[in-house]
Design a protein around this nucleic acid. Structure first.
Length: 946
RNA sequence: GGGGGUGUGGCGGAACUGGCAGACGCGCUAGAUUUAGGAUCUAGUGCCCUUACGGGCGUGCAGGUUCAAUUCCUGUCACCCCCA
């Protein structure tokens, strides 16, 4: 009696696949190709989470099935291994992050291999491999060497940048500086969130109310020389190329919103002396709108130039370059104080709608070019220096933030857009489209038309022009960390050891620039990166007799993940980052599956790099990921939770609310209550909610929480493999529900799919004779009912129906229903006393992408010697599926009253006669008048009667 | 506040272009079998009324369109995710 024993057969097949290199990527593509890619993981010390195998199993099913249809498959796995946790662990233990990183990778590989994924492990890469870093640095140099030519709409070599004569005349240093202004990778003084206590720069998301989220240390906004990526140059293409991708509308929209393309107008407001206004107007009407504003105007960007007549004040960002000029002497103290407060806030906090908007009056006024009105100029931090021109015209009647600000400081509100009739939503502040009022000659013009007209007038008068603006900012690319890629950049030094300003890339032949050996990684409280502590040998190289200092910032974690999918194609090439011929064969990625948390940044950055490499002729695909799917989150098991007062009395969920810091309180008494987990046996359903069995007045909650260590509901995939087997885990995660939906874990569901596999095993293997032998000695004997005889009609129908459903469900990535169909197959054949091999064998092939180990084992039990990984995928015969008779429901007034068993294709007339002849129908229709009869052949008959 | 998504039995979820709501699995109930079972097999299982026959109600809620609505339209509520 040999039972199904995954612990025994799974390692054996994993070994077989490894020994035979079963999943080696084919060297050439004869026919179709599939590049199935998972978002590669960060190898954390925690090991694999159940969320990982969800997406990985999905791509594995697609990859395995594709191989069986004669498709050449590239299905690789690697590791995104730079990052903060490894560095923090290194600081804590004073060991090199490479050591812990490699250990974690080893652990991840072992965990992934025990799940039986069909990766080509010969292609495993890590972003931290020196041979990988080499090419990340090489790509950086490409970006450094590229400028964006707006005429050709593509990135081109910096050597092709036209240099104005006066720059050439000023000498080579001037030329170099000019070029630097155009490079896609460039340096600038950026305002960063510097936290002295943590010794690092923080992302905007890591700062709350001027304090670091971790540790609550003060954070300063401080200008530091940083590397940036000119991603804004590609904003248009990054947006428009989304159209041809097979991505969900949701993710496309996220990307579009992040890019945030808006069209509006730039308008100049005169701020010079009043007696010069007329002269200025005249000059402008002749010269037109200048590219850069002069000192006598304040330039704003607005998406609503149609509301110009409603501008009642102006706002400039606290960092705006005209702040000094515009501040009147009597206001200077107030302005200075305000600027200091604003400097401590992050952009995020400044835009927070819940916080009252603040500002300060500069004491100056500007002239509205459309009506000559003189309006006050304010400074407020709700305007960001980085967006548009860093200054706005405020139209409180039609912009929510302006309105809020105007209310606070009692500023004038002039309504200039009449909402459409019946629209009462914006009674005080209407932000939608309507018709113009209080707008001089434009009164009565609809908003959209007004926008075009005003643009024309602004252009004519030289006071404005239409303009496109993006929310997307250039990408802050440097980090003050140790565990990242060093920049392949050298700063030239003069004889005194000061930087001359000349910056060169490291020669390609000198790549990679390796990380230096450091004695400690501890932060030192100054914003210099840890690499500043490297030995002079590393820090001060000499090139062509000149002394240089290395760039000591490192690249962000995004860098490695921006191009790893290209390296998988050609992972060990020493000559180029990817062979162009191979790239042409395999790109784009045909299926990319991963978490939704990467829907914006990772995908945007990777697409940007890809386009630059495309423009520079290194790639032949403009977009990297043709089809993208975001898997849903797997939550913890459903839990019943109730609330208790400190004295232990139950509180119904009706009386529980949350206070500001999210702790639970009694809604009326405002006293704290604690959340208590409740045994499902103590809960019962009452109406549309759950209550305590002991006291039905106490409502309790039933929901699934995110898996977290704190809650103690984390499921470890390795434990599931130990207990149920890898095939069961794979099958369970796919059976749980639709891939893209988040869904709760339920351990008893795993035993459900395990039961199914047990059943499949017993279909083929005799399990009830074997005597006293211990399990290891037992042979798998084919079940007595397995036969070489031909299948009967019903068996064939079940088989072909299963083939059809499973095949189309895999195409739709609807794995849960595919598994349900296979369960039906197993249930049916369990009841069959003869089980033709001609049905069982195709079934095993269908099962194999989902549960590869058991499928291989049973395939060999049936006498096959080779792996089934390249057996032909079964095909179905539609004519064998169709049943000859169908059951047609008969309804009266849309309610089913009877059923007819008729041959498929029975005509309408005949159906009607048969239905009318039906005893029950006849009785119910007796004495009634049939008003209408609806008949859909093979589907239903419906009588409308009175 | 803005955007996206989801609401179907005790639970996870099926249901193609509007056409038999609840496939499949879990759980539960009963029976068979076994030395035993967290094993296997068989049957049942949306809710309510009824001994039964049978009937009524049911896809978050309220309306609408239709012979027919989980599916289409209008409004509304709840939860989840992302952004601010």
């Amino acid at each position: 009696m040999a039972r199904y024993n995954p612990q025994q057969i799974e390692p054996r097949w994993q070994q077989y696949w490894a020994d035979n290199k079963t999943f080696k990527t084919p060297a050439s593509i004869d026919d179709k190709k599939l590049y199935a890619l998972d978002m590669f993981p960060y190898p954390s010390g925690e090991g694999l989470h159940v969320g990982h195998p969800e997406g990985y199993t999905a791509t594995d099913i697609v990859a395995r099935q594709a191989r069986m249809t004669g498709t050449a498959v590239l299905h690789p796995m690697g590791f995104d291994a730079f990052g903060l946790p490894a560095e923090e662990y290194a600081i804590k233990t004073n060991t090199h992050p490479r050591i812990s990183t490699n250990k974690n990778i080893e652990n991840f590989v072992a965990q992934l291999q025990e799940l039986g994924f069909s990766y080509d492990w010969d292609r495993q890469i890590s972003t931290t491999d020196e041979n990988y870093v080499r090419w990340t640095q090489w790509i950086f140099l490409q970006l450094f060497d590229t400028w964006y030519d707006p005429d050709q709409n593509k990135g081109r070599p910096i050597s092709a940048l036209p240099i104005p004569d006066e720059v050439t005349a000023a000498g080579p240093v001037a030329v170099a500086e000019y070029q630097d202004e155009f490079r896609l990778a460039y340096q600038t003084n950026a305002l960063v969130n510097w936290c002295p206590n943590l010794g690092t720069v923080l992302a905007n998301e890591e700062v709350k109310d001027g304090l670091s989220e971790r540790g609550n240390h003060p954070v300063e906004r401080r200008p530091l020389k940083q590397w940036m990526m000119r991603i804004t140059a590609y904003a248009d293409r990054l947006e428009s190329d989304l159209d041809d991708l097979d991505w969900s509308d949701g993710v496309k929209k996220l990307q579009k919103d992040w890019i945030g393309r808006s069209t509006g107008a730039e308008v100049d407001f005169f701020i010079g002396a009043a007696d010069q206004l007329e002269g200025w107007k005249q000059t402008r009407s002749q010269s037109g709108f200048p590219r850069k504003p002069g000192a006598d105007v304040l330039r704003v960007y607005t998406t609503r130039p149609d509301t110009l007549f409603g501008a009642t004040y102006m706002v400039i960002a606290p960092e705006h370059e005209l702040v000094q000029t515009l501040t009147a002497p009597q206001q200077s103290d107030a302005v200075e104080a305000y600027r200091e407060t604003a400097a401590r806030k992050s952009d995020r906090d400044r835009q927070d709608d819940r916080v009252k908007k603040t500002g300060v009056f500069t004491g100056s006024y500007a002239i509205n070019p459309v009506n000559g009105a003189s309006i006050p100029i304010w400074i407020a931090d709700y305007v960001l220096a980085g967006y548009g021109t860093g200054a706005i015209m405020a139209v409180p009647a039609h912009d929510a933030r302006d309105f809020q600000f105007a209310q606070t400081y009692d500023l004038e509100v002039i309504q200039v857009v009449q909402p459409p009739q019946g629209d009462t939503k914006g009674a005080q502040c209407f932000t939608g489209h309507g018709t113009a009022i209080n707008s001089g000659p434009f009164d009565g013009t609809p908003t959209a038309e007004f926008k075009t007209k005003i643009a024309q007038q602004l252009t004519q008068s030289g006071t404005g022009k239409t303009a496109v603006n993006y929310k997307l900012r250039d990408w802050l690319f440097s980090r003050q960390r140790f565990w990242g890629e060093p920049f392949p950049i050298l700063h030239q030094l003069d004889d005194e050891g000061n930087k001359t300003g000349v910056v060169i890339g490291v020669a390609e032949t000198d790549l990679p620039v390796k990380l230096p050996e450091l004695k400690d990684f501890k932060p030192h409280g100054r914003p210099e990166p840890p690499l500043e502590k490297a030995d002079d040998d590393w820090l001060y190289p000499v090139v062509d007799g000149k002394r240089y200092k290395r760039e000591t910032n490192t690249m962000p974690q995004w860098a490695g993940s921006c191009w790893y999918f290209l390296r998988f194609i050609d992972p060990s090439n020493e000559e180029v980052f990817v062979d162009p011929e191979l790239e042409k064969q395999w790109m784009p990625v045909d299926l990319y599956i991963g978490g939704a948390e990467h829907a914006v940044l990772h995908l945007l950055y990777a697409r940007f790099w890809h386009k630059v490499l495309f423009d520079r002729g290194h790639l032949c695909t403009p977009e990297p990921f043709q089809k993208l799917v975001n898997q849903g989150m797997i939550l913890g098991e459903n839990e019943f939770t109730g609330f208790q007062t400190p004295s232990g009395n139950w509180v119904s969920t009706d009386f529980v609310s949350q206070d500001e810091d999210k702790s639970y309180i009694h809604a009326t008494e405002k006293t704290p209550v604690t959340q208590v987990s409740i045994d499902p046996a103590d809960a019962e359903k009452s109406g549309d909610h759950f209550v305590l069995t002991v006291d039905p007045n106490i409502k309790i909650a039933n929901k699934a929480f995110k898996m977290s260590k704190a809650r103690g509901n984390v499921v470890n995939p390795s434990e599931v493999v130990q207990q149920y087997g890898a095939d069961s885990l794979r099958l369970y995660e796919m059976f749980l529900g639709p891939l893209e939906q988040s869904k709760p874990w339920n351990t008893s569901g795993v035993s459900g799919v395990r039961n199914f596999l047990d059943r499949v095993w017993r279909l083929i293997v005799e399990t009830d004779n074997g005597g006293d032998k211990n399990e290891a000695q037992e042979e798998n004997i084919i079940h007595a009912s397995v036969t070489d005889n031909a299948a009967n009609e019903e068996q064939l129908r079940v088989l072909h129906q299963t083939i059809k459903s499973v095949t189309t469900d895999i195409e739709k990535l609807s794995f849960n229903t595919a598994i349900a169909r296979m369960m039906e197959f197993a249930n049916f054949f369990t009841k069959q006393t003869t089980r033709p091999k001609s049905c069982l064998e195709p079934f095993l092939l269908l099962l194999s992408p989902f549960a590869p180990h058991i499928a291989e084992e049973l395939w060999s039990v049936l006498g096959h010697e080779k792996t089934l990984a390249y057996e032909a995928w079964p095909e179905f015969d539609e004519s064998l599926i169709i049943e000859s008779t169908v059951e047609v429901p008969v309804q009266i007034m849309g309610k089913i009253k009877s059923r007819l068993n008729v041959p498929r294709g029975t005509s309408k007339d005949e159906l009607e006669n048969l239905a009318l002849a039906d005893e029950k129908i006849a009785r119910l229709l007796d004495g009634k008048k049939i008003i209408k009869t609806v008949i859909v052949p093979d589907r239903l008959v419906n009588f409308v009667a009175k």
